[in-house]
């Protein structure tokens, strides 16, 4: 019986159901639900009917009903990974990561090549890892899982991808969204001073602010070109993070900076405030891309003017930005 139904899924899509799919795509969930209620009773047994109903319920915010509908459908059609996938995404929205993970794992067992499930698993894994790291290192914010993919149809149209080829894995989690013009590139040619914010009575002039920003852009450039010696020079001579000697620190930075095959660091949305005499606090967004990883984080720098030169005396992450 189930086998017959499975085979019939993609073969017989009634026109009415296709319409409903269109309504869901358009975000007209109430309309879709009304139409679903008015569907021929013969169609109501169709898995696609139940699938659309679940999606419409979810869209309309009736999560409990949507969950119940997916569960009923999974009982009827236990071999369709899309169902596990979509139900998992509802659980993710509700913060029930364990349930979501279990469902996605089940989906992977049913159809190991279904790339959407794999991507989603990666996404929630990475989001959870990120959350764990943020907690471990006491960063204020952690991101939600991003780039999750809902299945909108019940046919296997996806090209299966082997898990090992799905790289770079972590990049799927945040797709940095960069508006042209508001981006500080590491080469510093087109600095946008839109977000500068230094008090008028400040002892630090606008020129100084641009100079300080230029320093950070050059810092990012040194990082991007993986020029460790130059990179280190942006930090004050006595820069030695607590608990670490400068030598140890420098060695560590060297290792980290040289590790990736390539790096590109972009800075944007500078927020500059004075932080004492000849001292600036600059908060910004850092877009980090490398062959193996990319992310966007908020960072804070304290720059101090030492011997007529702006040097970094403090640098800390304020958290991941989910985009």
């Amino acid at each position: 019986m189930i086998l017959v139904l499975s085979q019939s899924i993609s073969a017989q899509v009634s026109p009415a159901l296709a319409d409903i799919s269109g309504l869901i795509e358009a975000g007209q969930y109430q309309q879709a639900l009304l139409q679903l209620d008015n569907t021929l009773s013969s169609d109501k047994r169709h898995p696609l009917y139940m699938f659309h109903r679940a999606r419409a319920l979810e869209g309309a915010g009736q999560m409990d009903k949507a969950i119940a509908q997916y569960k009923a459908l999974i009982k009827l059609q236990p071999t369709l990974p899309e169902l596990y996938n979509n139900l998992a995404l509802i659980y993710i929205q509700q913060g029930q990561m364990q349930k979501a993970q279990t469902l996605l794992n089940q989906a992977m067992m049913i159809h190991p090549g279904y790339s959407r499930v794999y991507k989603n698993l990666v996404a929630i894994n990475a989001a959870q890892a990120r959350d764990a790291y943020a907690k471990a290192l006491q960063m204020p914010t952690a991101s939600q899982a991003k780039g999750l993919e809902v299945a909108d149809t019940l046919s296997f149209v996806e090209e299966p991808i082997p898990a090992s080829q799905a790289e770079p894995i972590v990049a799927a989690v945040t797709k940095p969204h960069i508006k042209p013009g508001m981006v500080y590139q590491a080469n510093g040619d087109h600095a946008d001073k839109r977000t500068e914010r230094v008090e008028k009575e400040s002892s630090v002039s606008k020129v100084e602010v641009s100079a300080a920003q230029a320093i950070l852009l050059n810092w990012a450039k040194a990082w991007s070109t993986q020029n460790v010696d130059q990179y280190i020079r942006f930090y004050s001579d006595d820069y030695s993070p607590a608990g670490m000697s400068r030598t140890v620190w420098a060695a560590q930075r060297k290792k980290r900076i040289r590790q990736p095959k390539w790096i590109h660091v972009g800075l944007r949305n500078f927020d500059v405030t004075e932080n004492g005499p000849a001292r600036l606090r600059i908060r910004l967004e850092q877009e980090y891309k490398a062959d193996n990883y990319r992310d966007v984080t908020r960072k804070e720098f304290i720059l101090q003017k030492i011997d007529n030169e702006w040097r970094i005396i403090k640098e800390r992450g304020l958290g991941y930005i989910g985009r």
């Binding site: 960063m139 972590v170 850092q286 980090y288």
Partner: peptide, 24 residues
């Protein structure tokens, strides 16, 4: 992607304050 405690790409773009915490 993990070869030592906290040795993952997820932490490679972090600020120094986080690296110190990681060391600790």
């Amino acid at each position: 992607q993990v070869s030592d405690i906290g040795e993952t790409p997820l932490l490679q773009s972090m600020g120094d304050e986080q690296h110190i915490k990681l060391q600790q």
